[in-house]
Structure formats: C-alpha cells, structure tokens
Design a protein around this nucleic acid. Sequence first.
DNA 1: GACCAGGTGCCAG
DNA 2: CTGGCACATGGT
Length: 308
Amino acid sequence: MNATKGIKQGVLQCPEFDLRMTFESGQTFHWTEQDGGYTGCIGTTAVHLRQEGDRLHYRGVDARVLSHYLAFDHDLEEIRASCSAHPQSHEAAQACRGLRIMRQPHWECLATFILSPMKQVAHIRAMSLALRSRYGKRLKGTPIRSFPEPQVLASLTEEDLRACGLGFRAKGLLGTAKLVASGAFDPESLVAMPTAEARTALCTLPGIGRKVANCILLFAYERLEAVPVDVWIGRILDSFRSRKTTQEKLERYGEKLLGPYAGYIQQYLFHQARTGRLILPSQKKPTGRVARKSPHSKGSLPRATASA
DNA sequence: GACCAGGTGCCAG
DNA sequence: CTGGCACATGGT
C-alpha cells in the first residue's frame, strides 16, 4: 500500500472474490457504483473499490481493515465442500463463487436490518441512504456519509424517521436507538455470547424478530451458521422438504440440512433464487385469502428484480 | 388497482 | 402453540 498525499491506496490480491456479487447480494446496502467500481464507507472511513480480475484496487482504507471487512480469510473451498452432499446447495455454491459474507460494523448492520421487513433490497438501500444523507456525518473531503450513531437517531422523533420513508419501521429503529444510546443494550456485549443467547438478546429489541436477528448475527457477528428465514429461504427450504412449517422450524431444518456454514449456503441459495437462477416449483395460492403473512406462505416465486 | 416486498407484534382460539 | 391481521411505502 502506497501513500499519496496521505491517502491510503493500493492493490490487493483477491482470489475467490467477486466484489459485485458480494455487494449486490443483499447483505450490505450503501455501496454505490462509481468509476467502474464501488464507492462507500467502512464505518467512518470513506472507501473506493474497483476489481480487475483477481486484483482489488482500493483507496482510502488500510489493507488489513479491508481484508477483514471483506472476510478474505474465509475458506470458501471448505464452505463449498460443506454442502457437497446436497445437490441444490452445492450447485448454488458453485454458481456463487466469490460471494463472501462480510463483517459489517455492529450498529450499522443492526440498525439497517431493522429497515428490512417487507422491503425489497432496493428500498432498504434507499432508506439507508436517506438516513445517512440526513443524519450521517460527512466523511472528510467526500460526499460520502457514515451511518448515523445511535445517539443521533435517539434524539429524533418517529416523524423524522418516517420522513426518510421508513414507514412502520420508524418505531422500531427509534426504540432500538434509544436503548443503545442509553446503554441499556450494548451491541458489543453480543460478541462474547453463544449464538443462541445473542439471538435472544437481539430479539428483545423493538423491530427485531428471528429473521432480522439472524441477518445481524450472520452479517455482523461472524455467526456463519445463522439462517435468516425470509420469504425466499422459506419457500426454498419448504420445497426441499415439501412440507410447510413455522419460521423457527424451517430455520432449524435449514441449520441441519445446510451444515456448519448454513448461513453462507443460505446466502448462495438466496442469491440464486432472487436472480432467477433457482426455480422453485410454482405453487397455487389458496383461494380467497388476500393477506399472506406467514414466511412459508404458498405462492409463485416472486419475479427476480435484481438490478445488477 | 391488486399484489408483493430478505417480518414483527399482538391478539384470538 | 398456531393461525390471522395490521402495519407504511413504493414498484410492477
């Protein structure tokens, strides 16, 4: 890494890495395409990344911090091998070579996934950027904004947050921000907890249920076994066993079926389904009912809307 | 317009 | 414990 005018930059060897697939897979939401790469930030550090083959050009960040954020230490070969016994998972894992589960900052990830219920990836992104734009700090010499600190969000009103397009999620985010700002809940305390205990702790926060808790555990706390059961994974797991169940039962089934890296494999399946590469048996929806709320509810697979 | 989106919280059987 | 609805917002 060289220093140009005090700005860190350099090139990193990155075998088994796909920057686009990783950033567009629905685990992080603030990175923006620019100059043939992506502009965004890691915590409060503004960063630009551009991949050329197995070379990653980076600017604004230390190579060690970047490698940790992008989880270059994860052994993807071992992870793929862990699901070789299950054909559909193995196929998804092969197709998603280079997709890594990142290590995101705790608060940023926690808060952002409170925004996710009943929202498409593009909308989560819009809400995340709106919060950053209005209440985040400008990162020196750039237009990039960091994710607002809990104290900042805690000082706002629910109406302020609704003005960012959060809808009913405003209440959960505000309540959670207040609990964190007051010290009643410490996101750092989860690091030392077993996964089940950490999940229980997360689920005490307003706006966080099992699915969101598992996303946070997987994307910020290195719990690669955590399986967030959303509509997609619910349908996928449902189709594997062709029998419907509750969200928690599907989650346990997924953990057992997908193994020690279930969260990773889940992400591969999710990405394949969302981009239209994993076709599930289309199912007829029950007649008459309008609202469908259970995570495993029947219905044809949603159209893939991935923009990249 | 109806339907759906990486669900959660709450209430009735 | 399980099933059923309301909850906001924006896109196809």
